[in-house]
Design a protein around this nucleic acid. Structure first.
Length: 494
RNA sequence: GGGCCUCUAGCUCAAUCGGCAGAGCAACGGACUUUUAAUCCGUGGGUUCAGGGUUCGAUCCCCUGGGGGCCCA
């Protein structure tokens, strides 16, 4: 059986077996650790080359560097954050037997414990001068070459290896945790309550997307993974949870690419007596504060070295206004479908004839003429009503709704509404979505009767906002969405 | 969904008009008490993504399928 293994795996397995057979431990339950690698580094980094102390320390870490010069061995131990500490095993100090065992048993990738005096090597490297050592956990597979980039595929298929090998992978995990923490603390400071609403829903609504379907055996019924928490969060607002947010996963049964993942983390927040302007101010602060707290600056350095500034007041433009400017003629909610279609054909935008409605044409034209060229953080305001069924009509401008999308470096980071709270109008909007669905739009929003009933108990006027957390990480780093997700979905190899 | 690129040793990558499949690191045996991708001597390691076709001969050319990436929709 083990004869079938590649050489390096077989050799390591044999070492494990030999250690255990001779009464040693390859996987001890605990070790006499006195310091973390980081603690030793913090306390002794000032030592100068050749300077030794009488302070003893027992530390453990993963072997990422190994050198045997005969009667002296060097080993670099790494912790989960990437901190490294060298240990030196001299035959004179640990003894011949222990050194021979070390040479025979330890491979790159193993976890090893060393105990000894703290000092700096002749070359100035902070080190443990080991008087004893012990295997902490035997690795049966070799590490990849640490000074070469892992292939993109290996990175996502074996993220744990990526985390061991690549500092940027470790940084992303910690940055993401810092960003999410910043978001939560910001909300808490504003007296928003965090809630968790259903992931399994009988109707997947609150957004325009295809859901994942599943089946509940006990009730013998079809359920859907949520595409958005919106309707439940609004029901919470109806019930008096007037400042509320949720950070959780959404699932959309659509394509996956560098900015879309089938499951993605979403932040949604609702504020009674707020509107899309208060949401804009909130969103700008959430992002800028997260940048300051997680990165230490609002100036993001992208992978190509370019600096992108998230600071300052972000621009506000209107969808119809910016589109009119771009095409050189006035486009309004009254512009006919026929004329919009002429404009679309002029730039080779083709739309399914069954879905040829004013709102879709305006949005497609806007994306082509304006959205694709947006770079600096920009709020795009006042959308056509057809494509925004949960948004209230603009307070003064007929034919548009109070909705904005936030674009950062050309992708959509967040969206917000002055929420539609009139239950009669809301029902009409759902009816219109049902007509679109009947006409073949499989992304039309599904009607949710429970939600409409809740609305009939009166929801206070409110602003609501949604932001993709993975996309926020993209905005803060320039990484693709799969780099921001610790374990992204990967197709099986077979 | 469409187009292009890609899959070779544990890892990162070479290679051949179609003619014994290579390097670096890693591994194995040996030397070395201050190494930082050590150095020196020696050795082993391959279902070239899978299946089929063409051919005396396929890692290479063709077809089908699979994985990954990029661009477009």
């Amino acid at each position: 059986m083990s004869d079938d293994l590649p050489e390096q795996l077989r050799v390591r397995r044999e070492k494990r077996d030999r250690i255990i057979a001779s009464g040693g431990e390859a996987y001890p339950v605990n070790l006499p650790i006195t310091h973390t690698i980081a603690q030793v580094r913090a306390a002794y980094d000032h030592l100068e080359a050749g300077q030794e102390t009488d302070d003893l320390a027992g530390v453990a870490g993963r072997v990422v560097f190994l050198r045997n010069t005969g009667k002296l061995c060097f080993v670099a131990l790494q912790d989960g954050e990437g901190n490294r500490l060298q240990a030196m095993l001299s035959q004179k100090v640990v003894g011949e037997e222990a050194l021979t065992a070390f040479k025979g048993d330890v491979d790159l990738g193993d976890h090893v414990f060393v105990h000894g005096r703290v000092g700096a090597s002749r070359r100035g490297e902070l080190s443990i001068f080991a008087d004893s050592w012990q295997l902490a956990s035997k690795a049966l597979r070799p590490l990849p070459v640490l000074h070469k980039e892992l292939s993109e595929e290996a990175r996502v298929r074996q993220r744990y290896v990526d985390l061991i090998a690549r500092p940027a992978a470790r940084d992303m995990v910690r940055l993401r945790a810092a960003v999410v923490r910043s978001l939560r603390e910001n909300f808490h400071a504003r007296d928003f309550l965090e809630v968790e609403t259903p992931m399994l829903q009988t109707v997947a609504s609150g957004a325009s997307a295809r859901p994942f379907a599943t089946h509940m055996n006990a009730y013998d019924m079809e359920l859907f993974l949520r595409i958005a928490p919106e309707l439940f969060l609004k029901e919470a607002v109806v019930g008096g949870v007037e400042r509320v947010f949720e950070i959780n996963r959404n699932f959309r049964n659509e394509g996956a690419d560098s900015s879309h993942s089938p499951e993605f983390a979403m932040l949604e927040a609702y504020e009674a007596y707020g509107d899309y302007d208060t949401m804009a101010a909130l969103t700008q602060d959430l992002v800028q504060t997260a940048a300051r707290e997680a990165l230490g600056t609002t100036v993001v350095t992208l992978p190509d070295g370019e600096e992108y500034d998230l600071g300052g007041e972000w621009a506000h433009i209107t969808m119809y206004g910016s589109l009119s400017e771009a095409v050189g003629e006035e486009i309004t909610p009254e512009t006919s479908v026929e004329h919009l279609n002429e404009l679309a054909e002029k730039v080779d935008i083709s739309i399914d004839p069954k879905q040829m409605i004013h709102g879709k044409l305006v949005e497609e034209l806007w994306e082509h003429h304006v959205g694709n060229h947006l770079y600096a953080p920009t709020f795009v305001r006042d959308f056509p009503v057809e494509t925004s069924p949960l948004t209230r009509a603009h307070r003064t401008i007929p034919g548009v709704v109070e909705k904005w999308d936030l674009y950062v470096r050309g992708f959509e980071l967040a969206t917000a509404y002055s929420e539609l709270v009139d239950p009669v109008v809301q029902r009409e909007r759902f009816a219109e979505q049902a007509r679109l669905a009947a006409a073949g739009d499989d992304e039309a929003m599904a009607l949710d009767e429970d939600f409409l009933t809740a609305m009939e108990y009166a929801m206070p006027p409110a602003g609501g906002m949604g932001m993709g957390v993975d996309r926020l990480l993209m905005a803060l780093t320039g990484a693709g969405i799969r780099e921001t997700i610790l374990f992204p979905l990967v197709k099986p190899t077979h």
